[in-house]
């Protein structure tokens, strides 16, 4: 179950982190940096709209998790070639995973949790990182890549 890309979007909708992994047969083509911003902004907007139009009574009470605050908004976009999973932390940070179509939402959840864990450890505990700024931390890159590589084999 390969992961093709990991994006992170701040609570205000700006792109914090984007990484396309080298996976054989990946349907995700490399974009220029402007397009990444557009994709991030669009996903953020669609997520906001969908969370507004979801009727609150439709949310199952047991369908909530401690770590995922994405209860009303867009969760998953499925296509023939890939799935896009949108997860939100309690602080409004969105972690977006582009995966192969066989990765369903429950399967994507542990992947999201791991990336979130690395974010907490290697980004938030880094004194040189300012909140809501693009993430440039070598150790975080290394860890995410190491984890994704393990899955992609």
């Amino acid at each position: 179950m390969p992961i093709y890309s990991v994006y992170m979007i701040s609570k205000s909708g700006s792109l914090l982190y984007e990484k396309d992994f080298k996976v054989e047969g990946s349907p995700i083509t490399k974009q220029n940096s402007n397009d990444y911003l557009v994709i991030a902004g669009t996903l953020h907007g669609v997520h906001a709209i969908s969370s507004k139009i979801t009727p609150p009574e439709s949310v199952k009470p047991n369908n909530t998790s401690k770590y995922n605050s994405n209860k009303l908004g867009l969760r998953c976009i499925s296509t023939e070639l890939f799935n896009i999973h949108v997860n939100q932390t309690v602080t409004g940070l969105k972690i977006i995973l582009f995966t192969s179509p066989d990765v369903t939402s429950p399967k994507a959840y542990p992947l999201y949790q791991r990336v979130y864990e690395y974010y907490c450890d290697y980004v938030l505990k880094n004194p040189f990182y300012n909140l809501d700024m693009p993430i440039r931390a070598r150790l975080f890159d290394d860890k995410v890549l190491e984890y994704v590589d393990k899955l992609n084999v």
Partner: peptide, 14 residues
């Protein structure tokens, strides 16, 4: 363990 040095502080070691 969790600190990655940015380029402008390459000479620094915490």
């Amino acid at each position: 363990r969790y600190i990655s040095m940015p380029k402008e502080y390459e000479n620094l070691n915490c």
